[in-house]
């Protein structure tokens, strides 16, 4: 059963990675924690759900969720962070501002959904179980793993292999220097927030499909997970976040499977604490990355 649970952990970790990568991308480029990221994730799940229950196909719901979540994320950047950025002291202000944005989005979702927990219809995704080398893997798990992998690869390609990605990395290193070379930091921020939001929206749909529970507060625990993952992986490190997400997913699944259920979170967070004792800057983090004011 260990191999089966590891497989479960990798699939769940892949979804965590989608969420955490967007969270980390924003932190990496602006050194701010966007605490409305969980609300964006929730909005994505609701968008796909509304599409499906109104007769639309799941693929359309998935795309709409990514598009809407991306736009919502850009809106948060424009409304909550841009003005603060001009003051040059946005780190703590952004935390408060994003909490406010999160509350507004969640309240709207609560009103619209009537505080109900909704779910995709049972047959939205076909239940097909495959036996591979003694392991059971469902079609939904394959889809989740494939979608997470494809989106992470696309994001990595975008960041590391395209002119847009070069601009993002240039702004990450030094926004003023990038501006002197003709890069418009605001445009880069918009692209980054859209990408982060789209990834969160995709993660929301996958979580809604896998765990059958879409509600206005569903983003809150993922925000905590995302925070843990980016700390564990190393603040601002995309490969670190990916590694940490997979590790976190596996640790979570294995502790649920083999330990008394009440101890799960205590054991997970004890493990994370021990890892951080040995590597204070995270698995793949750099010393300066953890310093919020370190790069300007």
């Amino acid at each position: 059963m260990i191999a089966q649970q590891l497989l479960n952990g990798i699939v769940v970790g892949g979804v965590y990675a989608l969420f955490a990568l967007g969270f980390n991308l924003v932190f990496g480029i602006q050194r701010i924690l966007n605490l409305a990221h969980g609300a964006v994730f929730m909005a994505g799940a609701f968008t796909a759900w509304y599409t499906v229950v109104n007769g639309g196909p799941l693929w359309l719901g998935f795309l709409l969720a990514m598009a809407l979540s991306g736009c919502l994320s850009v809106l948060i950047e424009l409304v909550c962070f841009r003005r603060l950025r001009r003051t040059g002291d946005e780190e703590f202000g952004a935390i408060i501002s994003s909490i406010g944005a999160s509350l507004v989005i969640m309240t709207i979702a609560q009103r619209i959904s009537g505080t109900r927990i909704v779910r995709f219809p049972f047959d939205t995704f076909p239940i097909q179980i495959y036996q591979v080398a003694g392991l059971r893997i469902s079609l939904l798990q394959l889809f989740m793993a494939a979608a997470a992998f494809a989106l992470v690869v696309v994001m990595a390609w975008f960041v590391y292999r395209t002119p847009w990605g070069r601009r993002i990395r240039a702004v990450t290193e030094n926004a003023r220097a990038a501006m002197l070379t003709g890069v418009n930091p605001n445009a880069v921020y918009r692209q980054t927030y859209f990408m982060a939001g789209a990834l969160a929206g995709a993660a929301g749909v996958l979580v809604g499909l896998a765990f059958n529970s879409i509600h206005y507060m569903m983003g809150e625990p993922y925000l905590l997970f995302g925070f843990v993952i980016i700390i564990l992986g190393g603040l601002g490190s995309i490969p670190g976040a990916l590694l940490a997400a997979l590790l976190f997913g596996m640790m979570q699944t294995l502790t649920i499977a083999f330990l008394p259920t009440g101890l799960t979170n205590a054991v997970i967070f004890l493990g994370l604490f021990l890892i951080l004792l040995l590597r204070p800057h995270g698995l793949l983090g750099r010393e300066e990355a953890g310093q919020l004011r370190g790069r300007r």
Binding site: Q5, R136, A257, G262
Partner: peptide
């Protein structure tokens, strides 16, 4: 015999245990 929280929604590991 397993216990969950009323707010839980990820039963992936639990489901594997049950099915096993």
């Amino acid at each position: 015999e397993e216990s969950i929280l009323s707010t839980d929604s990820d039963f992936t590991a639990l489901s594997t245990k049950i099915v096993s």
